[in-house]
């Protein structure tokens, strides 16, 4: 067994990188999709729920009230573009490319960027997603926000010794 296999504190997931949250408060690589929530530029009460499926790049974008996004017809809208950009800031382009299964060879020469990922996926002429994940993504966003409302405790959590802080980045 290798060191990684025999370590109780092997670092499996690099921590997210800090980014500004104003435009895209929530991004995640989950449920086989890049998905998240993009704040509307014009209406402070409105958010767009956007997603791109791994492998097929099937995309979806609608408001939290289930109105379809006008821009997401025949290709990625600007909300999906913003989602890709912010996911690259948060997780690093390599991890996003690996998760979405965008072949590095499809991307431009060298390191993938948000732009090259967007271009490589768009070039395959992805179709709109058949499933509408907006409700589940939005509920995951609310669950994520609810973490800020949870109480702190000064009772020790010995289990956290398995989760040392780390300087490694994605």
């Amino acid at each position: 067994m290798s060191d990684f296999e025999r370590s109780s504190t092997a670092r499996v997931v690099p921590p997210a990188r800090p980014r500004k949250l104003a435009k895209v408060p929530f991004v995640e690589l989950a449920d086989g999709r890049l998905q998240g929530v993009v704040s509307s530029g014009s209406d402070i009460e409105r958010v767009y729920v956007s997603s791109v499926e791994a492998g097929t790049y099937a995309y979806a974008c609608s408001t939290n009230n289930n109105r379809p996004c006008g821009g997401a017809r025949g290709g990625f809208c600007k909300h999906i573009g913003a989602l890709i950009t912010e996911s690259v800031l948060q997780y690093g382009a390599d991890r996003v490319a690996r998760y979405l299964r965008v072949d590095a060879a499809d991307a431009a020469d060298g390191e993938p960027t948000a732009q090259s990922l967007n271009a490589a996926m768009s070039a395959t002429r992805p179709a709109p997603a058949e499933s509408k994940p907006a409700a589940s993504v939005f509920s995951r966003f609310l669950r994520h926000l609810a973490y800020l409302e949870l109480a702190a405790t000064t009772a020790p959590l010995p289990e956290m010794h398995w989760f040392p802080s780390t300087r490694a980045v994605a």
Binding site: P18, L148, L150, A152, L157
Partner: peptide, 20 residues
């Protein structure tokens, strides 16, 4: 040992952890 812990959103990092 004296401990304090808190759940957090994954986008709260670094100095943000001390703030919580």
């Amino acid at each position: 040992r004296a401990s304090v812990s808190v759940p957090k959103p994954d986008t709260v990092l670094g100095a943000g952890v001390w703030q919580l």
